[in-house]
Design a protein around this nucleic acid. Sequence first.
DNA 1: CTAATAGGATGATGACTATCCTCTAATCTG
DNA 2: CAGATTAGAGGATAGTCATCATCCTATTAG
Lengths: 180, 180
Amino acid sequence: MRMSQADKEKSHARIVASASQLLRERGLDGASVDEVMKAAGMTHGGFYKHFDSKEALIEAAIGAAFAGFAEPLERGEPERAVAAYRALYLSDGHKNHPGIGCPVASLGPDIGRAPERLKSAFGAGVRRIVAALARVRKGSAQEREAAAFREASMLVGAMVIARASDPATARAVLDACKRQ
Amino acid sequence: MRMSQADKEKSHARIVASASQLLRERGLDGASVDEVMKAAGMTHGGFYKHFDSKEALIEAAIGAAFAGFAEPLERGEPERAVAAYRALYLSDGHKNHPGIGCPVASLGPDIGRAPERLKSAFGAGVRRIVAALARVRKGSAQEREAAAFREASMLVGAMVIARASDPATARAVLDACKRQ
DNA sequence: CTAATAGGATGATGACTATCCTCTAATCTG
DNA sequence: CAGATTAGAGGATAGTCATCATCCTATTAG
């Protein structure tokens, strides 16, 4: 049963959105085409009408994840946005909902094993977040960027450690990082 | 062709060692039983004489990875050991050889999706590293532990970001973190 | 309004992989 | 040293998954 062009675009967006969430929840190879399509309300049949390959979907999904996760950091007044971002990043909610959280914390190592093209896209996403964090720092441009890189590293590492550990250790890392 | 008990133990150790490396290189689901056994110099046939399941192998491999990676940090004079650890952690060599590197940076998110038992083991490994890092800090026990948690987070996050990014971004994160 | 087109459903194919079974030759037990 | 035991090889089985081929039907160009 054929659908209109507008409907196809909606389908496309739903596929990307469900992939973006499922990949962050289960890892780069954790969601089958069939599962992604089911989560988008379809069967696997039409998938290749939307993407040339699963890899192409993954690329689109990562882009969507970065767009969704970096955007609130860039919007509004910098001091406030960054403060909110820090609190959100180190929250239990973020720890428990990787599907809508930071793609670096959920997919970083997987991307490390992926082709260079994906790494470039990922690096661009990281730089975007770092640039936003650097706005609220003092000092030279270099110093501000370096401080932002260190903060981003700490945030990512804390979330990775928290998710990979028992609850007590998780709380200890997150609390320690909040205190700074 | 049966081998002696001593030889079996050697085989066992080789299986664990090759799994420990392959898992860190390719992710928790990235190495098949066949590949692990081949890397250990055997065929897949004898695997279940050594482990009840692939999951049991993974558990042993993670334990071995932590043991190998945390041990040098605990040995010798603390100040010196910690300084060497920091330099090694943020080095290009560590970035380019995840198979013999920090298991948190290579497997963290995968463990986050694993059963609670694995997370407890992982959390214990993290605490072991944090305790060693805390020895060279000033202040109360709590303050020292918190500072160590922050440092461990930064190290892990920096390596995750560096591996997942283009070379320029990778250098930028690692350099920024070295500067602290 | 008709014919060509293309979403999306179903089903098939081929590759890969965890686990199990069988067999052989060597070790261990007594 | 004979018989029971077992490490590891080779092969088989069942399940999963990406991708392809076909079909149906609604859209849409003309």
